[in-house]
């Protein structure tokens, strides 16, 4: 019944000769939502960057399989086309490239990979506008250059909009709630929550519990010093919120 989508086995990785990930293991099955929680500076973002193939990270041992394929052998664009999406903690500004142009290239690259025809521009713009409304990004904003002049909350909503348009099989939300006020958090959480369809899997990386009140995870893992130190159900998040991470940091 359970089909593994992502299998991370005994992963070790470093950045600038510093070992950051030290024996990480995690399997995510189709349709599951996992949360990885941990103290700041534990290397949570390193993990998401490695999964998406960001240059500058060196995997020294271990393996990552996505849909049974060797993920680490793929370029960042191949990973995205296979169905991985990273909602970034710090979305990048791209002056001169309008949101619609950017997304159209992304959607068509993914469609081409799947052997589907390119979308008609009119249909595409209409679709992005409709999705935009769900994330309270109006038509004027999606004509603007990617993230340029966007507030912190608007950037996060644009990440969520991209996710809704690209429809990945596996989404990583890296601190998707940081910098969001309560209203914006709800917009993002509701939008992302609506993408939960029993097949799509998610990995939510967060420091706080509050996003998990809206997108309730199936599993919660505590990440400290480069590995998972404790796993449990959704109740673990509440426990962490109450007790903090001190116990795990001591465990280093």
């Amino acid at each position: 019944m359970t089909t593994p989508l992502l299998e991370i086995e005994d992963l070790y990785a470093r950045v600038c000769d510093k070992e950051i990930v030290k024996g990480f293991n995690l399997t995510i099955n189709e349709g599951e939502v996992h949360a990885v929680m941990g103290p700041n500076g534990a290397g949570k973002s390193t993990l998401s960057n490695i999964l998406c193939g960001k240059p500058g990270y060196e995997v020294t041992s271990g393996s990552v399989r996505f849909k049974g394929k060797d993920l680490l052998a793929m370029s960042p664009e191949e990973r995205a086309r296979e169905g991985i999406f990273l909602a970034m903690q710090y979305p990048v500004e791209i002056p001169g490239v309008p949101v619609t142009t950017f997304l159209k290239h992304a959607v068509n690259a993914i469609r081409k990979h799947r052997g589907e025809p390119e979308l008609d521009t009119m249909d595409f713009v209409k679709m992005v506008r409709e999705e935009g409304r769900r994330f309270r990004l109006d038509a004027e904003m999606i004509k603007r250059p990617v993230n340029v002049g966007f507030s912190g909350g608007e950037k996060k909503r644009l990440e969520a909009l991209q996710m809704a348009v690209l429809k990945p099989d596996f989404a990583i939300l890296d601190e998707a709630d940081s910098g969001l006020d309560i209203d914006a958090l709800k917009v993002v959480a509701d939008g992302v929550g609506a993408l939960r369809d029993g097949k799509r899997s998610m990995l939510i990386i967060t420091h706080f519990q509050r996003l998990l009140d809206h997108i309730v995870p199936d599993f919660v893992h505590v990440y400290a010093d480069g590995r998972i130190v404790k796993s449990g159900g959704r109740e673990l998040a509440a426990e962490l919120e109450e007790k903090g991470y001190a116990e795990f940091e001591r465990a280093k």
């Binding site: 664009e77 970034m88 791209i94 990979h113 250059p145 690209l166």
Partner: peptide, 21 residues
């Protein structure tokens, strides 16, 4: 990287950035 992480190929991403420039 941001563009590639959305599925846009490296050459195409460079092209888009040059056009934007």
């Amino acid at each position: 990287f941001y563009m590639r992480s959305r599925g846009i190929g490296e050459e195409e991403a460079r092209r888009l950035l040059i056009d934007a420039y």
